[in-house]
């Protein structure tokens, strides 16, 4: 192996970081000692950098999911106009969420009628904030429960959950340690168990933007 001459494929593999340490060291030495190899290495290194740089910006542009994703109500509304199968897809995705990645997920607080009342700060946010609005609390989804109550799923600093409005205020129907605290926006709402909890509570489809606004204006009654 050691006698194998350093050739162009090896130089390319070295630039790509694909060589084992000893092999990489050998190529590095050969490149340092041989001007022709050095030029070859520079050419390939520059070309890789050129492609990465020319195309790199594309990957910084966000791309929306085409259908089943729940991001904002405006989006959902638009999708529903375009694709009649969306409500079914949403339901399917909520249910499917139960089975994906649940192993490492905390179980959270079970859905019980006598579940916890919500902290006043959080409750105020649920009273007023529309879904998709930024802030320390983010509401992802508003919907009617099977018992007719309005419910909202949310991500707060230390808590992800679903709360439903009862006569006495917002009551927690499901909760799990927060994902938003990690500061990674992409992580927020990444919680299959939460999706499963919603699927167990929801009646029909989530509210659209107009429905949500009108429910808010009526105090979620």
């Amino acid at each position: 192996m050691m006698a194998e001459p350093v050739d162009e494929p090896m130089v390319i593999a070295w630039i790509d970081g694909e060589l084992a340490p000893e092999q990489a060291a050998r190529v590095e030495q050969a490149v340092a000692a041989d001007p022709a190899l050095r030029e070859l290495a520079e050419t390939h290194r520059a070309m890789r950098a050129r492609f990465a740089s020319a195309f790199g910006g594309i990957a910084d542009e966000p791309v929306a999911l085409p259908s089943a994703e729940i991001v904002s109500f405006a989006d959902m509304r638009a999708r529903r106009m375009r694709r009649l199968w969306v409500p079914g897809a949403i339901a399917a995705s909520l249910v499917a969420g139960l089975f994906i990645g649940q192993v490492e997920r905390p179980k959270g607080v079970a859905d019980r009628a006598d579940a916890l009342a919500l902290a006043p700060d959080l409750a105020r946010k649920l009273d007023t904030q529309l879904s998709g609005e930024p802030g320390p609390v983010r509401v992802a989804l508003s919907f009617r429960a099977r018992d007719g109550a309005y419910c909202r799923s949310f991500s707060a600093t230390h808590l992800d959950g679903v709360a439903c409005r009862t006569a006495t205020g917002w009551t927690l129907r499901y909760a799990a340690p927060g994902t938003a605290a990690r500061g990674d926006y992409a992580q927020a709402g990444n919680n299959p168990a939460l999706a499963g909890a919603i699927a167990a509570i929801i009646a029909g489809d989530p509210l659209d933007a107009a429905g949500e606004r009108s429910a808010r204006d009526r105090g979620w009654r």
Binding site: F55, I58, A59, D60, L65, S93, L94, A140
Partner: peptide, 22 residues
Amino acid sequence: MDAFETALIRILPRLRRFAHGL
């Protein structure tokens, strides 16, 4: 959004870049 959709949304910009290449 569940884990699958989150993972998909995270990869989509790179898929789109790959699509440009193809």
